[in-house]
């Protein structure tokens, strides 16, 4: 079902009617929906990005859930529980979006626990202090929101819709983290030190969440052309830093970058050199907690296997029973 744009087929690439329709939809800033024709590369790119994003939410529960049982007040305990619970929900929304592209949650989970799937490297860092609950909310969720708000307009409908819901729910995540740090900075000397130390540890990894520099980001250009991604990595990183500087001033914390300075010409905050060696090390599985994170996910999945099987078996039995009863009645 192909047609050529011009009669001279030797000079132009043949493009199918479906592909033309797809291109037109992208061009018109419309949305691609699950049953639409799409290039295989687009589908693969989306499955890769959405499942990575889902895995990040799921693995991302761990560094924070470490502190649920030790939260220092009942109010903080409730907030943290609600937040980590949201992350389970967000992972679930995203797995559902990927599922519309033919990837099943079971397969994606298997890939994750087999160590074959990627997730955001930031969650391979440990959370030794309570202040890390503040830094994760303020810096990690802050960076995530910068990344995610543009994704609400991603060209793939189910992804965009999942992101809308996620962004809406996440609006409290960053604030609660900021307020944890605010409380610590207004507290005792020890608490202030705890906050600053934590910001020191999370600041650079948070900046790395936007991904490698644009000239070193192999998938970015195509994702932008397909409008899965709306802004470049460096662009988003710059916006994030511009946002952080005044917030850090409110908190009274120092951002650990001696080269950070305001550039009068660009009216932006210029940042110092990012140590990408560390990023690549963690990405390559040589971060502090990679093995532990995967093991815990695998344990939860494997220990839950008998429960999932039990419920599925019960459903089959109930279905068989109802069918028998209906047949007997008719």
């Amino acid at each position: 079902m192909t047609s050529t744009i011009t009669p001279d087929t030797s000079a132009t690439v043949a493009i199918s009617v479906e592909e033309q329709q797809f291109n037109d939809l992208i061009e018109a800033d419309s949305r691609i929906e699950p049953r639409d024709w799409m290039p295989e590369g687009y589908r693969k790119s989306l499955v890769r990005q959405i499942s990575q994003h889902a895995h990040s939410e799921i693995i991302g529960m761990q560094p924070e859930s470490n502190w649920i049982t030790r939260a220092p007040s009942l109010k903080r305990k409730a907030i943290l529980m609600a937040k980590v619970q949201d992350e389970a929900g967000h992972g679930l929304y995203l797995y559902s979006a990927a599922q519309t592209l033919g990837a099943t949650r079971d397969d994606m989970t298997d890939a994750l626990i087999a160590g074959k799937a990627r997730y955001s490297s930031i969650f391979n860092y440990p959370t030794p202090t309570w202040a890390d609950m503040g830094s994760i909310g303020w810096l990690v969720d802050g960076a995530a929101i910068c990344n995610q708000v543009p994704l609400c307009r991603a060209s793939y409908g189910p992804y965009g819709r999942a992101m809308v819901r996620i962004c809406k729910e996440e609006s409290f995540h960053q604030r609660q983290g900021f307020e944890i740090l605010l409380e610590l900075m207004a507290g005792t000397e020890e608490q202030r030190e705890m906050a600053q130390d934590s910001v020191n540890r999370w600041y650079w990894p948070a900046l790395m969440m936007f991904g490698p520099p644009d000239d070193d980001s192999p998938n970015s250009a195509q994702s932008m052309a397909w409008k899965i991604k709306r802004h470049s990595n460096d662009d988003l990183r710059q916006r994030f830093v511009n946002m952080l500087v005044p917030q850090a001033a409110v908190l009274g914390v120092t951002l650990p970058d001696p080269d950070l300075h305001f550039n009068e010409v660009t009216q932006q905050w210029d940042l110092g050199e990012i140590d990408w060696t560390e990023f690549h090390e963690v990405l390559a599985g040589r971060g502090p907690n990679n093995a532990q994170r995967l093991q815990r996910r695998r344990d939860a999945h494997e220990e839950g296997q008998w429960v999932r099987e039990a419920a599925a078996a019960y459903a089959r039995k109930q279905y068989a029973l109802t069918t028998t009863l209906e047949m007997a009645a008719s």
Binding site: Q99, T100, E309, A311
Partner: peptide, 12 residues
Amino acid sequence: TPGDSAAEIWPL
């Protein structure tokens, strides 16, 4: 509708 897979332990 897309997404359901008979291979999964719990349906969608």
